[in-house]
Amino acid sequence: MSAGAVLDIRGLGVDFLTPRGRVHALRDVSLQVPRGSVVGVVGESGSGKSTLILAALRLLPANALILGGEVVLDGEDVLRMSPAALRDLRGRKATMVFQDPSTSLNPVLTIGRQMIDIQYRDRVPTARKRDRAATMLRKVGIPDPATRLDNYPHEFSGGMRQRIAIAMALLCNPDLLIADEPTTALDVTMEAQIIHLLRQLKSEFHGSILFVSHNLGLIAELCDRVVILYAGAVAEEGSVHDLFHRPRHPYTQALLECDPARLAKVSRELPTIPGDVPDLLAAPVGCAFAPRCPKVFERCRREAPRLVADGDGHGAACHLVPAIASSRVGPRPSTGSGRGPPVEPVET
């Protein structure tokens, strides 16, 4: 079933051991990135989105405890891999672009040097590697790449550095590019350019992108499928159209309403989601969103809802959902943009 997915995370649970106690950061999270598509992960702070992407490359800090589940990248379980195999996988099959382009490049080496070093796996002459680096820089829109290879990171602007970071991430031709809020540190006009660049590159490289952001506008702009995380669990997932036009989970609905960019009329009173994100020191009983949910009813406080998906792979973890739109009940489908094979129904 996961044949079509580059990244297939199933039932992942992660706890953090902190001085305050055990923080249940991720609970039974499943997510698929189909080959050739862009999957967006949306979540507010504390939703577990950073934990999720770190877990995808097994880069979790030492105090993290993986409770269970599997992270299958290109058919191999990352969580059960030897350290050597893991190193080989990082950077070759999956690479990452970080939030802050000013710290993700080594300040004391020229970018040419860094871009050549990163190709250490290839047994080709250095001159060839340098050519490749220059070509890649041109592709990400750095003018005069051959000379710019000899510049140091501080000689580039923030937007340029992020382009370079993307170029470096793509140099090894990875199957999966993980982009963690890659435009948060950039200005709006630069952000638009980077998103446009990612869209271009996607069609050119046939790779898949896991794009993490809290900016709904960017998600709508770039992604094919979207996963909404809330308090360490998947609240809703589906195609980008379903999610933005037919959100099912009350949290998704509230989140979309909150975005000031969606308010057509000027208003001094902006919509909010009252209440706070739950403290994950104690795993929530019932639905994690229940305390803030406008449609909460008795069952929500008692029983955690399961993710219910229809044939198009649009699912929401909400007790109200079966009544609304469920045609099939089952584990999550792993179809890309609703084009994949239908999910076999589960025996009940």
Binding site: A192, H196, I219, A220, H241
Partner: peptide
């Protein structure tokens, strides 16, 4: 340059 939270109104090109 402001992204619209609507997948049906994606911008075809970048103005600035």
């Amino acid at each position: 340059a402001q992204p619209l939270p609507d997948p049906d109104r994606r911008r075809a090109n970048v103005e600035l």
